[in-house]
Design a protein around this nucleic acid. Structure first.
Lengths: 208, 208, 208, 208
DNA sequence: ATATAATCGAGACGGTACGTCAAGTCTTCTT
DNA sequence: AAGAAGACTTGACGTACCGTCTCGATTATAT
């Protein structure tokens, strides 16, 4: 969780309050729920957190960075449950992802920071390390587990394997995001079943 | 293309300048390219368009509505080319979509308005009618053409057919958007080939 | 009552509505009562009068000129009643003047246009001819009547006589205005009696 | 000198810049000279003062309050010079008052705020305490000094004395204001001499 | 214990953009 | 030509946040 200035060189002076950090991130999520991304103001977050605006700016460079950090922790709960089959595993994790994305904090904030990141490379990097890579890891774990189970052949060419993982990731994450935010339809069990069937069928066909 | 006040009931008074409309939308796209979504200001757009701020506010309710209209026309060029096979058709249209999405105006603005739309139902509706439905139509046309060619069986259950079209749409649009904006990787011929193979393979497998 | 353009050169086309004039001046007075000088807008006046803004601007150059005309007619009712003695005459006219000045239309507007006129010579001229000279005439009439009655000696030096009339006018009008607007105290019979005594005493003393 | 928010209760936070106050009032007077009351804008004043508009609004509620404060200090120089006789004292102070009123800052602003004050009681109170009472004090001092000199009998009934002082004040201030602003004639030595003769003659006659 | 130094809450600061309002002009159709 | 209607340009309004700064007051380590 990157900060503006690593506060560390010598350690003279009063140390930064650890409690303030959590209070600020909590306040940020609460403000996102109440106000949405565009009406959230750092002054309001500071007030909610019981903290001065300077304290906030000492730790984060701006709204984007703060919100990324506030939302990132929500993705920590994502994990790949072992449900016995690749299809069931995928359905489980897609449902988890959809559940996180359906929260008001996430829904309003995630696409906003992604939009900002198209003109702010450091922000994109922060999003990648804090949020995206955490999801991508699940794809790799899922593949590895499926290979162990014998549901998928061991990956031969590592280049092809990586490209396939990227593709699966863009397809899965993209589909869930698009259905949730653009189509504004629920990602329910029925939809997930159909999506998983499509994905696995496509993978099987593509591996010939 | 909805406006703030349908200007028309009787036709008393001076009519609204039609030229101003185009000037404003052009200026909006130019400002998006130069400044990006978050730094675009309506005052600046008005200045670029050679128009007073009030003229702008008379026609659009705010930044969101204006940007949706400005970006929407870019999607008008999307069409389903007949390249002889379903796979080729899909690849063609996906590449077209990716090309539009890769433009600076679109890249910076589209996700931003989608993010806003999570808290603004009329805005979501406007996005849907101005942009999304225009793309969705292509999915339906592609299916119809493929059935004519005999590449796909005639759709039996209309409910299932509709759900499948929705799924394909979310998968295709979502994957392209995610790869472009989140992964920030190019949607090139190679990627489109792999994606199309996955999609068609999945469809074939799912239809058993 | 000067207008912007004497509408007269040839008399082609539709003639100006005479009714509009009265409607506009009435609306102006009503708006002054409701809103005061600074919040009065010409658009609102036009609406109240049931008239288009263009009609209003065709006849008056702006807010100042319009208000002067609207208020001026109120001073038409000023007249010098013959109450038998100079003192009684003065008391009567001062009370009349104070009554007009105490109306909400007048109170809020008169000093405002005078303030404007310090930087607008044509406006000052319009105020003088429309309002001030109408009052000054009363001073001259009063003096003439008093000389006829033998209460004052016939004016010898015309220069001195004119200067004295000016002085009396500034003193009387100024005192009433100041008491009404600045001191915000009522100009009642008691005050008028004391003021008149002061004025006449001073005149008598000064004529030795 | 009242402000919008008495900034004082605790002394937390950064204190208000004292230099800004003077800069703003100076800029206000300069803008009055250049533009006059009605064309003066707070944005322009802020720019002239090298200050942000918000700083200005933090301290004054609006144009009226600001201008009253800016003009009020000019009246601080008013004082009652001891010239040996009541007549000479009055002439001196009337000339001083006329000189202040003849300044472009004062001429354009004073009647304007008085006009506004007819619909704004707090503004009238501010004018009274900041400007008017400062002048009225001179009348009382003048009377006291004249009684000491034996030029006037000691005031017997305090009620009558107060009423007389008020009357003198309205007459003197009103006459000077009216001659300066309405008649637009100079308050020169000759006029002051005649006015003083009238006033003192009237007072003497009224005291019998 | 006593500097030294970075933190803290509070709030003023110079800016920028907001969205609205009124002024005064212009363009259309109607009278 | 005048009229009503209403769009037009211009420019000021007063507010909201931005991100920085200046205070006095804590709260640590380093002398």
């Amino acid at each position: 969780m990157q900060r503006r200035m690593p506060p560390s060189p010598g350690r003279l002076g009063r140390p930064r309050s650890a409690a303030a950090d959590e209070a600020i991130l909590d306040a940020t999520r609460a403000a996102l729920v109440d106000l949405g991304w565009s009406k959230l103001t750092l002054g309001d977050v500071a007030t909610r957190a019981g903290v001065a605006k300077t304290t906030l700016y000492r730790r984060w460079a701006g709204k984007n960075e703060l919100v990324v950090d506030a939302v990132a922790v929500l993705f920590d709960e994502l994990e790949l449950p072992d449900k016995g089959s690749l299809a069931a595993d995928i359905e489980g994790v897609v449902l988890q992802f959809a559940a996180i994305l359906d929260r008001p904090e996430t829904k309003t904030a995630l696409m906003a920071v992604v939009a900002e990141s198209t003109r702010d490379e450091p922000l994109r990097e922060r999003i990648r390390t804090s949020i995206v890579d955490r999801q991508k890891r699940l794809v790799l774990e899922g593949r590895a587990r499926a290979e162990l189970r014998g549901e998928l052949p061991a990956s031969s060419d590592p280049h092809t394997a990586a490209a396939t993982a990227d593709l699966i990731f863009d397809v899965a994450a993209g589909a869930v995001v698009h259905r949730t935010l653009v189509s504004a339809e629920p990602v329910d069990a029925e939809w997930v079943r159909r999506f998983t069937a499509l994905l696995l069928g496509g993978l099987a066909a593509a591996s010939h």
